[in-house]
Amino acid sequence: MRIVNPSFGIAPQSEGTATAGPVDWANDPIILFSNNKPNAKELLEGVRDRLSSIRRVDNIDYIAKSSASQPAPPEMINEVARKYRIALLALGD
């Protein structure tokens, strides 16, 4: 028998795949991007502390979206993309 596929959908026009160029792990600026869940900040800052033993950390910054339940605003994402080469995102609970 023939049925209509209830999971069918059309992929939107692709905006292209974002690709990152080569990264200099010793020097490139890093943003620590928190999902604003409890302990996310402590986790990311703990990673930064440990990174100090293997690279410079004066250009590693921290930012958090304003609510754990809402997406980061596009302007925040654009600003981060403009200023940093690497982003470490905390996702979890």
């Binding site: 209509v4 209830p6 999971s7 069918f8 959908g9 992929a11 939107p12």
Partner: peptide, 8 residues
């Protein structure tokens, strides 16, 4: 991230 059709 799929656009549904009226049929689906």
């Amino acid at each position: 991230q799929l656009i549904p059709t009226l049929q689906s």
